[in-house]
Amino acid sequence: METIFFYLVALVAVVSGFLVVRCQSPVNSALALVNTFFCLAVFYVMLYAPFMAAIQVIVYAGAIMVLILFVIMLLNLGTEARKRYTHGVVWAAIASLLVLVNVVFFIKRGRVTGAEGDITDYLIKTEGHTELIGKALYTEFLLPFEIASILLLVAIVGAVILAKKDV
């Protein structure tokens, strides 16, 4: 049952990933990308990581893609953008095929089940995925977390300064 569902979602993810590069209009490509992100969120749910799924949808599908869509729409890139980037398709195909072979090779070689860590299946079920992430984030990884927040603050200040010039 779960396997069938996985293949179904995987099919949708791969098809929409293909549509991202194949669609004629950039807006349709962006929509296909949203769909791919959504499928990734479904995979997170299937891996018992609902928090990651929600963040995936909120951040990628809900925020970043909306901005990308905005840029595409307001610049109104028509089909001329497509004509400009149609050279070297064959080489790109060969390169990506080689990468695919590489990936499959390494997956086959590695241990797919993964190493046993501190966070076990049992712990996730009893304590909850979100709680565990919260604890790890605010105790063990507090310093990286704070550094990331300072980085974001710098980015916000930078954005404000850049926007202020025009006003």
């Binding site: 609902p50 928090f51 799924a53 929600a54 963040i55 949808v57 909120i58 599908a61 809900g62 925020a63 909306v66 979100t130």
Partner: peptide, 11 residues
């Protein structure tokens, strides 16, 4: 993650 789900759908 009910509350986050609501925010995600709103997005």
């Amino acid at each position: 993650i009910g509350v986050l789900y609501i925010l995600a759908m709103a997005g």
